[in-house]
Design a protein around this nucleic acid. Structure first.
Length: 156
DNA sequence: GCCAACGTTGGC
DNA sequence: GCCAACGTTGGC
């Protein structure tokens, strides 16, 4: 079982949307590094930190679980979608998706600033290579993050 | 809205 | 295959 961090823009689709629909296709990935991780390493049962980016409060908002293998992202074939890719074709799809299911919304968002200020998380991909939209998370990093979230819970 | 970091494209 | 130009991401 692997741990990941998936980025979303809460204005488009955030943890609350996932909590409401329980399960959703994670689509629109248009970066090769992220695509390769989805294709080669993400498997059913993997745990995912849902991260909110490009918004007022950036940080980790909750947890989801991978519930399908990678399959072609249908948006790449839809001319009306902003994720349409004219260079892709159904017999040789370029982009893929997985489905994820809602697990938990944190009582409080864990801000990026808190993650950056924790020396135990210095090596996180989020800190070192912030732009990648699908990121591997080490088991140890996952633990540290959950501990930070749980401390916040106790304060609440 | 600015800007740094990074990814992609395309000419050569 | 290099590299300059350009586009995008995303924190602040």
């Amino acid at each position: 079982m692997n741990y990941w961090l998936f980025k979303s823009e809460p204005d488009e689709f955030g943890i609350d949307d996932l909590a409401a629909c329980k399960r959703e296709r994670w689509d629109g990935i248009r970066n090769y590094q992220a695509r390769n991780l989805l294709r080669d390493q993400v498997v059913v049962g993997d745990q995912v930190l849902v991260y909110h980016s490009s918004c007022k409060n950036v940080g980790v908002a909750g947890i989801a679980e991978v519930v399908t293998e990678a399959y072609p992202d249908p948006l790449q074939f839809d001319p009306d979608s902003k994720y349409f890719d004219p260079k892709s074709s159904p017999d040789n799809p370029r982009w893929i998706s997985v489905d994820i299911a809602f697990v938990e919304k944190f009582p409080r968002l864990l801000p990026l600033a808190s993650i950056k200020s924790n020396p135990q998380l210095d090596e996180m991909v989020l800190v070192k290579q912030g732009r990648l939209s699908i990121q591997p998370v080490k088991a140890q990093e996952w633990q540290v993050i959950l501990e930070m979230v749980n401390r916040g819970r106790a304060d609440a």
